Amino acid sequence: MAAALLEHRAQGRVRVRSAGSAPADAVNPVVVEVMAEVGLDVSRRLPRRLFTDDVEVSDVVVTMGCGDECPYVPGRRYEDWPLDDPSGQGVEAVRAVRDEIDARVRRLLGELVGEA
């Protein structure tokens, strides 16, 4: 959700990568549903594993509770966004997670490019 929202909000002003320490086989169908509510289609995205190379080429690394499982590269800006895991949650709960992520994305984008 964070990558799709940031890509949408940034409109090409930042390069976005998305990966996880324990990626699922497919995007959660409830996530697909709540993202479609805001006009974003994430149904064809494929979750992928986060590697050190991903972090090495990034200026800002946003984590969501991966702790010691996330690669660490000195000199990168790290932000941990402690959010509820949408896995196994209903539409209302996932919608709240989406909205929290969107608020954080807007704030981060404002810091990176001067406006949200």
Rank of each mutant, 00 (worst) to 15 (best):
A103L: 06
G75Q: 01
G75C: 02
D41W: 10
V31C: 05
R15F: 08
A3S: 11
N28S: 12
V16P: 04
E115G: 12
G20N: 11
Q11E: 14
P23E: 06
R9A: 14
A96N: 08
E56T: 12
T52D: 14
E69W: 14
S21D: 08
A19D: 08
E79V: 14
E111Q: 07
R104F: 13
R48K: 11
G67M: 12
G65F: 04
L6T: 04
L108V: 05
G20C: 07
A19Q: 06
R76M: 01
R107V: 14
S87Q: 13
M1H: 07
A19S: 10
D80Y: 09
L40I: 13
M35D: 01
R95E: 11
V14N: 00
V27C: 05
L109Q: 02
A4N: 03
P86V: 03
Q89M: 14
R45L: 15
D85E: 00
N28A: 10
R44L: 10
E33C: 12
L108R: 01
V31R: 00
Q11H: 13
E37C: 07
V97W: 00
S18N: 08
D85M: 00
L83Y: 01
Q11D: 14
I101W: 00
R13S: 05
E69N: 13
N28G: 06
A4H: 04
V60Q: 04
V42Q: 00
G39A: 07
V30Q: 00
P29H: 03
A116Q: 11
D54W: 04
E100Q: 13
A103S: 08
V55T: 05
V42E: 01
L46K: 15
A22P: 12
V16K: 03
D59K: 06
D80H: 08
R104A: 09
A19F: 06
T52V: 15
G114L: 06
A10D: 03
V91D: 03
A116H: 11
H8L: 05
E92M: 07
D84C: 10
M35N: 01
G90E: 09
D53L: 13
A103V: 08
D54R: 05
P86R: 00
A24H: 13
D84G: 12
R77P: 10
P29T: 06
D102A: 14
R13P: 01
V91M: 04
M64D: 10
A116L: 13
Y72D: 07
R9M: 12
V94A: 01
E69P: 13
R17F: 15
S21H: 05
P74V: 09
E92T: 13
Y72L: 11
R95Q: 11
A36K: 14
A10N: 03
V30H: 01
P86K: 00
S43A: 13
R44W: 09
E69A: 15
A10M: 05
V57N: 10
V57T: 15
D59M: 06
T52P: 09
L83F: 08
